[in-house]
Write a protein that binds this DNA or RNA. Structure first.
Length: 531
RNA sequence: GCGCUCGUAGCUCAGCUGGAUAGAGCAUUGGUUUGCGGUACCAAAGGUCACAGGUUCGACUCCUGUCGGGCGCACCA
């Protein structure tokens, strides 16, 4: 809709036109302050210009009214335009809000270490990434969802050690001395029993078999992670294992040419040249590559696979890492601007106003699966999708367990369910409703229809700006418009019953598509409250 | 110390590439249809947009500085 108006105006005025939402719907559907920006070059007052422009729109079937108010130009879309568009959407629900973007994008997210189950911090990046994925795909982008598995280095050795420690205390009853760092949590018990079954008890006490144990265990941990993500309706296309990358290291190192050099027996990358604070070591004195080396090979591999755009979603604590990876990409001969790194910030949880307690059982972290169990996947997804991901977030679980309007996810679902209920109560058939005309709606109905038809541009805007929260915001306000309309206006038995039901179907369609893009299924009916 | 980032109502947060009177939800207070699900709706109250400058027709938005919070500053991943 917006696009249509915007191209129309661009053609008419011969320049880009800023389109915005009028302060008040009674002003119209769209507005532009264009008169202000050209006032200077025309040496006329904004008022005079907008008056002139407004009167030039006499004959036009998209707008029913164009007027000038205090220098702003306000547009009201015509009935024909809105009702045709709505009718098209209802008969082509699969196409509504879709576009024909074809860019190939590689989206890497979550990428949590395979050393334990996901915790609450991971789930934010996971939901954010997956929502972006769903939005992008809806718009037609060809997006591959990828998980980078850090299955090399110290952490994997630590995993093996941790399983042994757990087994020796709980299974063998030994009094072991715990080192400074090791992993803890309930999942280790499962790994111990699995390991004993597979390898026998001996493996718990044999330090030389730690590696073997760890390599087996990380796959088991990945199984847990994949399952937890599946519970959130998140699925990946590809997994890339860090351990598989190092074979390619020599070739990639050579590919960077002048970008790397030797000093003090180590190999460095000259990342300072590309904006990093200083150069970084990529190969240690003993010949072992650093973690950065793995990431360099990985990004080289990404670019060799040939996508048009790359998006990484990282935890905010990695922000210092961006410049060195980008530097490496440049040295490899690729455009680092094709690589976009989005950061997801910290999350703190409250429950009834008090900090949420981390359980010892979980290993002093808040497990994602515990939260999903407590409030459900829909609520968790909604929470993370509804906030900008680059600010620290604090939220209270209690709010999302309530079954009333203070719970946004409930509120939206209820709007959808209301429509479905009323449709089933009406005596009009689906066909009769679809054949009804949407013309002659009063101000409120017209406004609701317009709101419902905004979905496509919300989707596009949310994806393009990477501001995923625009979609839940929109759904909440659409639900609010619906509830308000419903309260004010009797539907069943009114002269306009079929017409209004058709309007409601458009609203339901937008709610349903919007929710599905958040990974949430729209409900046909709400369960009745107890008592 | 350096870098990144944030600072909007009592609380949690929106505010699009600068544009009309800075918006929601929660919490508080007061109300609502002899009717489709009251699991809803309406209203009141609540603000020096951290502070100080600058840019301009116009700044919550852009720039500079100050203060305050978070994160990062490994040859760990």
């Amino acid at each position: 809709m917006k696009q249509r108006v915007s191209t129309l105006l661009r053609e008419k005025f011969g320049r880009e036109v800023v389109l915005e939402k009028p302060k008040d719907r009674s002003f119209g559907h769209f507005a532009t302050p264009i008169a202000f920006s050209i006032a200077k070059e025309l040496k006329k007052s904004p008022m005079a210009i907008s008056e002139e422009l407004a009167s030039s729109f006499n004959d036009n079937d998209v707008f029913s009214r164009v007027e000038s108010v205090k220098g702003y130009l306000n547009f009201r879309l015509s009935e024909n335009f809105l009702s045709d568009y709505a009718a098209w959407a209802l008969t082509n629900p699969q196409e509504f809000g879709k576009q024909e973007k074809h860019e190939k994008i590689l989206l890497e997210f979550v990428s949590a270490n395979p050393t334990g189950p996901l915790h609450i911090g991971h789930s934010r990046g996971a939901v954010y990434g997956d929502t972006l994925l769903k939005l992008g795909r809806h718009l037609g982008y060809d997006i591959t969802a990828e998980y980078y598995v850090n299955d090399a280095g110290n952490q994997i050795d630590l995993l093996g050690l941790s399983i042994q420690l757990e087994g020796r205390t709980t299974l063998l009853g030994e009094a072991v001395e715990y080192p400074e760092s090791y992993y803890r949590g309930e999942y280790l018990a499962g790994l111990v029993s699995g390991a004993v079954e597979k390898f026998g008890k001996e493996i718990l006490s044999d330090e030389s078999r730690q590696k073997e144990l760890a390599l087996w265990a990380k796959d088991k941990v990945m199984d847990i992670i994949v399952k937890d993500l599946g519970d959130l309706n998140i699925f990946f296309n590809t997994f890339v294992y860090e351990s598989s990358l190092y074979d390619d290291w020599e070739r990639v190192l050579a590919k960077m040419g002048e970008g790397v050099y030797e000093k003090e027996g180590k190999i460095w990358i000259a990342s300072e040249m590309h904006g990093d604070e200083k150069d970084r070591v990529v190969v240690r004195e003993d010949g072992r590559p650093t973690y950065l080396a793995g990431d360099i090979v990985y990004h080289n591999q990404k670019f060799e696979r040939g996508y048009e755009h790359y998006i990484n979603i990282w935890g905010a604590d990695h922000h210092g890492y961006i410049s060195r990876v980008k530097a490496a990409v440049e040295f490899l001969g690729y455009e680092s601007k094709k690589l976009e790194v989005l950061l997801s910030q910290m999350v703190s949880l409250l429950k009834d106003g008090e900090p949420y307690k981390m359980s010892k059982r979980a290993g002093n972290v808040i497990l994602m699966s515990d939260i999903v169990e407590e409030i459900g996947s829909d609520a968790l997804r909604y929470i993370f999708a509804s906030k900008k991901c680059d600010t620290a977030l604090e939220f209270d679980l209690a709010e999302f367990k309530k079954q009333d309007s203070s719970n946004p996810i409930f509120y939206i679902q209820y709007a959808h369910a209301r429509i479905k209920t009323i449709l089933s109560k009406s005596n009009f058939s689906q066909e009769e409703i679809l054949n009804a005309s949407l013309k002659g709606l009063d101000e409120n109905a017209d406004s609701l229809l317009f709101d419902a038809l905004l979905l496509p541009e919300i989707i596009e805007d949310a994806f393009a700006s990477r501001q995923v929260q625009k979609l839940p915001d929109y759904l909440k306000s659409l639900a609010s418009s619906l509830h308000k309309f419903y309260y004010d206006c009797r539907i069943i038995g009114s002269d306009d019953e079929a017409k209004l039901l058709k309007l409601f179907m458009v609203v339901a369609l937008s709610l349903k598509i919007g929710l599905s893009l958040l990974g949430i299924e729209a409900k046909e009916q709400m369960s009745k409250a107890e008592d």
